[in-house]
Write a protein that binds this DNA or RNA. Structure first.
Lengths: 349, 349
DNA sequence: TTGTAAGCGTTATCAA
DNA sequence: TTGATAACGCTTACAA
C-alpha cells in the first residue's frame, strides 16, 4: 500500500503541495473554499502527515524517551515503577507526547538523542552514576530536555523530581519508639545507588532522633528476593531487633514472605515497615512510608514537557508520610504471641 | 547545538556525502583507507545518523507501537500487564526495536501507522471490538505488522498470541470438586470483552464437568475495586457458595481485601481462586490458575518482529495450570477453623 | 490567495 | 573506488 502524501492530495485537487500543507494547518491566508476542499479530501482518504518528514523539517521528533534503570525484569517486577509509569503515561498522553521505551542497561538513550529520535529524556530510578550524569548534562547543554526522577548522585542543574522522605520516615520512627521498640534492623537498597544511600541516611538519623538503636544493617538490591533473603538471615541469626525497616516495599514483601515460610507472622514475631506504599502494601497490610508515586510520575512528565517548551520550572513539593497498618505493633503485645525468646546479637549498624 | 550530519563529516574529510554514507555502512566497495578515516572521525564526533532522515528514505520507522487497552491507570495498576510488559520490553530490547507507548483509549494507533511513526503494532488485552479488529485487519492488509495478545472477538488472520486456559481451569475445578465444594460463584470480567467472555465460558464448562454448581455469577471490570465490590455483595447476600472463582487475580485480590475488612479470612470463610498467577499471588497465598504471562509477552514481541520481517509464523503453545495455595481448601475443614478466628495459620490442605 | 523552489539528512542510482 | 544527483514527504520564504 503506497501511503497517501501531500503531493497526492495536491494532484487530485489540482493545487500545489504548499497550498495543501497550509490549508491543513489552517493558515488564515488560505481561502475558505480551498481549505474546505482540502480538509474534506484529507479526511476522506485518511491522510496523516508523515512523521519522519515533519521531524526532518521541524528538527524535532515530538517524542520523549523513557530511560529505565537496570533490566526490564527489575523495573516491571517492582510495583513502584508500575505506579510511576502510570503517572508518566497518563500525562504523556494528555500532552500528546508519545513515549519511547528503553529498558537497556547500555546508554541507548544517548544514541536516541543523537539520532534525533527523541527530543528529551526522562530517566527513572536514578541508579545513574557520575558518568551518566555528566553525559546527561552534556546532552542537556546541547539542547536536549532532560528530567530525572529520584535523587541523583550529586547536585546538578538538570530538572530533578524527588519527594521529601524525611517527614514520613520520621513519623515511622516516632511511632515505633512510642510503641516501645528500642532495637531495629535496617535493610537498605544497594550501596552504590545514591537514592538508597540517602534514604538509608534518613532512616538512621530519624532512628537516632527517636532513640531507636540500629542493631544491624543489611544491604539488599531492592528486589523481592533480597528482602526474603535478608529476612532469612535475620531469622537465622536470632537478631533481637523488634522491628525491621526496609528501603522499599518490595523488599518488605519478600521479608513477609520469608516470615510466612518460617511459620511466623508480622507483627507477632517482628514489626515490618516498608517504604513507598505501593498498592499491594494496603492489600497485605504492610505498615509503610507513603510516597506519592503517581504524582511523582505526573510531575516528572510535566516537568519534561515544560523543559521541552523551555518554560520555567515550577514544582509542587512532594512529601512522604507514615501509614501504620497491620505489620507494625508494640513489641510488648507482640511478644505474647511470639514463640521465640530473644538471643541478642549485636552487629555493627 | 547544531547536530553533526553526514555532510559535516564529508566536508571535513573532503569527500562526498555518499562516500561517507557508504563507508559507515561498511560497503565493500569503499577502500579500507577511507573507511578507516570515516569511521574514526564519526566516532570522534559522536556521529549518529538522523533517524527521521533514515525513516524517510527507508520508508520504515524501525519502531513498533504498543497499544494498551483502556487507561494508563487500568493497565499499570494491574500486575498482569506489568509482567506482560516485562516480557515485551526485554525482547524489544534484544531485537533492537524501540517501543512507542500509547495508553490512549482513542485509536491513536491508527494515526501512528498512517504517520509512519511505527511499522507495526502490538495490541494488549484485546478489549478490542469488532471495529478495532476491522481497522487492524485493514492496516495489516496495507502492509502494517500487527500482533494481538489475547483472544480477539472473532477469528482473524492477524497474528494472535494466547495461551490455552482450559487445562488450568479444568484442574482448578477438579481440585475444588475433590475438596468437597459443590456450589461456587463466578466473578468474570466485562461482558463486552471477548477474552472475559471466553474465559467465563471455560470456567462454566469446567465447573459443569466436575459437578460444581454455579450459584451466581457477577460481572466485574477486572479491577481490584470490582473484586472488592463483588465480594461485599456476596458477603451481604449470604450466598451459599463455598468458593469464589475470579476472572483474574486482580479482582481476587480485591475480594481478599473485602474479606479482610469484614474480619473474615480465606479459605476459612470461602475459598478464593484467581486467574493469572501474577507475582503478588504467591505473596498473599492466592490459589490461582497460572498463566505464563512473561512468555506471552516475549512470544508476542517475537511474533511481531517476525511479522515485520515477513517471516513465517511459528509459535510455542502456551498453557495454564492450577496452582493451589492457601486460599483454597476443603469447605468442611475450613468451617472448623472459621469459628476460632484470630491468629491461626492455615496450612495447605 | 496561491505557486515555486529550496532545504531538512539519508540513501540509492547513475556516471566517472 | 568515488562523486553528482535525484528521491523520500514536508515546511516555508519568496514570488506571483
Amino acid at each position: 500500500m503506497r501511503k497517501v502524501t501531500l503531493q497526492d492530495l495536491a494532484d487530485t485537487l489540482g493545487v500545489a503541495r504548499s497550498t495543501v500543507s497550509r490549508a491543513l494547518r489552517a493558515d488564515p491566508q488560505i481561502s475558505v473554499a480551498t481549505r474546505g476542499r482540502v480538509d474534506r479530501l484529507a479526511r476522506a482518504v485518511g491522510y496523516h502527515p508523515n512523521a519522519a518528514a515533519r521531524a526532518l523539517t521541524h528538527r524535532e521528533a515530538g517524542v520523549v524517551g523513557l530511560v529505565l534503570p537496570r533490566s526490564a525484569h527489575f523495573v516491571f517486577a517492582n510495583p513502584y515503577f508500575a505506579e510511576l509509569l502510570e503517572g508518566i503515561a497518563s500525562v504523556a498522553e494528555s500532552v500528546g507526547l508519545p513515549i519511547l521505551l528503553s529498558a537497556s542497561t547500555t546508554p541507548d538513550y544517548e544514541r536516541w538523542l543523537r539520532e534525533a529520535r527523541v527530543d528529551g529524556l526522562l530517566t527513572l530510578g536514578s541508579s545513574l552514576g557520575e558518568s551518566d550524569i555528566q553525559r546527561l548534562e552534556a546532552l542537556a547543554a546541547g539542547g536536549a530536555a532532560v528530567a530525572l526522577v529520584g535523587e541523583p548522585i550529586r547536585p546538578t542543574d538538570l530538572r530533578v523530581l524527588v519527594c521529601d522522605e524525611r517527614p514520613g520516615i520520621d513519623q515511622a520512627c516516632e511511632r515505633l519508639a512510642n510503641d516501645g521498640h528500642e532495637c531495629v534492623t535496617l535493610v537498605t537498597g544497594p550501596a552504590h545507588a545514591p537514592y538508597a544511600r540517602s534514604r538509608s541516611a534518613v532512616w538512621r538519623s530519624a532512628a537516632e532522633r527517636h532513640g531507636l538503636q540500629i542493631l544491624r544493617s543489611i544491604t539488599g538490591d531492592d528486589t523481592f528476593d533480597a528482602g526474603r533473603d535478608a529476612a532469612r538471615v535475620l531469622l537465622g541469626s536470632r537478631c533481637a531487633a523488634t522491628a525491621w525497616l526496609f528501603g522499599n516495599d518490595h523488599m518488605a514483601f519478600g521479608a513477609l514472605h520469608a516470615l510466612d515460610e518460617a511459620g511466623l507472622r508480622s507483627p507477632d514475631h517482628v514489626s515490618v515497615v516498608g517504604f513507598d506504599d505501593v498498592m499491594a502494601a494496603a492489600l497485605v497490610g504492610l505498615s509503610t512510608v507513603h510516597q506519592p508515586i503517581r504524582e511523582l510520575g505526573t510531575e516528572a512528565m510535566r516537568a519534561l514537557a515544560a523543559e521541552l517548551r523551555q518554560q520555567p520550572r515550577s514544582g509542587t513539593p512532594l512529601v512522604t508520610r507514615f501509614v501504620p497498618r497491620r505489620t507494625s505493633a508494640s513489641p510488648l503485645s507482640a511478644s505474647r504471641h511470639s514463640s521465640e525468646g530473644g538471643h541478642i546479637d549485636i552487629s555493627e549498624p
